[in-house]
Structures are given as structure tokens and as C-alpha cells.
Write a protein that binds this DNA or RNA. Structure first.
Length: 262
DNA sequence: CAGATTGTTCTCAT
DNA sequence: TATGAGAACAATCT
């Protein structure tokens, strides 16, 4: 689930639930989600700290405090939820930060990613985010075109490569390519200027609507709302959608609206 | 039971 | 050097 819009939603959860509040207690229910930090060290580093304004880069959420920064990555199934203290625990609540009346819970079924601690909020954040490309929402048209036109692989692979631009996942990439009318298997460096321009506009439009919805909305007018149908049809032309594998991920496209050649 | 899954990362091949 | 395929990771669901 978590792509840029979901993580932006978690950032809002963090902002409204935790900003300005003091971390009274750190409960680690499953140390398997901690990366490069022990339970004891995490507790010592966070206890007594106050949350500051959170930030996001791509799919990373940065929970800043008046001390270290807690960095979260949600993998495929992670979420950040704000509960009242004493709300019934979910079996997948891996880490709970008690804030007084509220609790911030890092909930994750599969534990593919998790929590990192940046004790030095400048150096460590930079180290952990090293290799991430620019955030997809902050990329202007010129920079986007420049980035994509240097990629010789498939355009979908470029869009979902976090080192090229950060934030797009499998659903968003398919949705954006469908809207732009581009086959996911097209080589990025063979897209012409108009196609790159379209791709950039559709990326921004799709991201904006998705951020508003807190996820890539499965509306029937979107590709995302059709991709799990047993015989999916294109919301635009009503023709059958194709399924395949691009860059190792399940990919859906419309053979009519997303032509093969250029 | 086999196969699939919205994320990342690593290895090996091209 | 850059890409791509496939596996691995974990825990389900179909």
C-alpha cells in the first residue's frame, strides 16, 4: 500500500497526533522492525523527547524530535496509527510510543521495512536517505525530463526506481502511465518531449488527487479501480486491459490507449 | 498446495 | 557502467 500519498497521510497523522507532545514511554513489541538500533538504545534516545514538525521524503517518514529523528519506512503493509491510550492492541502493533492520552503505533503485518534511528538528525538522516532521488512531488518539469531522458531502461522501471525519483510505487506508476497514454515497456530515453511533458503533468495530477485521498484511490474511473477485476476493462475506451510483468512487478495497461511504438 | 502480493536490496547475467 | 531478471525478506490471501 504505502506509496508517497499514503506516507504523506502518515505524516499528517504524526503531525496532528504527536507534534509538540512528549514521548513518555517506548514499547517495542517486536524488535524485528528495528534497524541498526537496539530496543534499549531506542528507548533511551526517545524517552522524554518532544515531537517536532514531521517531514517526508519519497516513501520515508521523518519523525523529528527535539533530539534524534525517528525514521520510518512502511514496506508494503506498514501504517502509522494514532490511538487513545488503552485502545485494544492490534497483533501487528510492533512499536508503541506512549504520549500521554494518545499513542502512536507503528503497525505492520509483514515486517519488510521498519524503524531507523537518526541520533544525529543531520548526518544520520542524510546517510540513511543516501541514494534516494528527489521527491516526486518536488520535481519540476525540466528536472523530470532531464532525469528520465538519461534512462535507457523501461519507463516504468525508471518511475519506480527510488534512486531516480522517490515516492512512486507499482500502483502509481501504472496509473500515471495509463493517464499519459504510454506503454510501461517504452524506453525512457526514447520518449519525446511532448510525451515527457505529459508524463510529468499526469504524475503531478495523480499525486495531488492521491495525496488528498490518502492513497491511490480505487475509483472506477481510475486504472487502479479496475486492475483487480477478473476481466478488467479500460475506464477510458472500455476495451480489455492487459496484464503482464514489467520490472518484476505485476503491471496493467490498456493496449489501445497506451500504444506500443512511439 | 501453488502462486501472488502495493516495498527494498542483493546477486548474477546481459 | 547500466539494466534487467530473479530471489530473498515476512506474513498473509486466493
Amino acid at each position: 500500500m504505502p506509496e508517497l500519498p499514503d506516507v504523506e497521510g502518515f505524516r499528517e497523522v504524526l503531525d496532528s497526533c504527536a507534534r509538540g507532545k512528549r514521548i513518555e514511554r517506548v514499547e517495542v513489541h517486536d524488535a524485528g522492525v528495528l534497524h541498526g538500533v537496539t530496543v534499549a538504545r531506542l528507548g533511551r534516545a526517545l524517552q522524554g523527547r518532544r515531537f517536532a514538525e514531521p517531514a517526508r521524503h519519497g516513501k520515508w517518514l521523518l519523525a523529528r524530535t527535539d533530539g534524534p529523528t525517528l525514521m520510518m519506512h512502511f514496506g508494503m503493509t506498514g501504517q502509522l496509527v494514532c490511538c487513545r491510550a488503552g485502545d485494544p492492541p492490534d497483533p501487528h502493533d510492533r512499536v508503541v510510543l506512549a504520549l500521554g492520552r494518545e499513542e502512536l503505533r507503528f503497525r505492520d503485518q509483514r515486517k519488510l521495512q521498519g524503524l531507523w534511528l537518526a541520533e544525529d538528525p543531520d548526518a544520520d538522516v542524510a546517510r540513511i536517505l543516501h541514494g534516494q532521488g528527489p521527491d516526486a512531488l518536488s520535481l519540476d518539469r525540466a528536472a523530470f525530463k532531464d532525469l528520465l531522458s538519461r534512462r535507457r531502461g523501461r519507463v516504468k522501471a525508471a518511475l519506480t526506481d527510488q534512486s531516480v525519483l522517490a515516492g512512486l510505487g507499482n500502483l502509481l506508476a501504472d496509473e500515471i502511465l495509463w493517464r499519459a497514454g504510454l506503454r510501461p515497456t517504452r524506453r525512457a530515453d526514447r520518449l519525446d518531449d511532448a510525451e515527457l511533458g505529459r508524463l510529468h503533468s499526469e504524475m503531478r495530477r495523480t499525486l495531488r488527487s492521491s495525496v488528498r485521498a490518502g492513497r491511490v484511490p480505487p475509483r472506477r474511473s481510475w486504472l487502479t479501480g479496475r486492475r483487480d477485476d477478473s476481466d478488467p476493462t479500460c475506464p477510458r475506451c472500455d476495451g480489455p486491459l492487459s496484464r503482464g510483468r514489467v520490472g518484476g512487478r505485476g503491471t496493467v495497461w490498456c493496449p489501445r490507449c497506451q500504444p506500443d511504438g512511439s
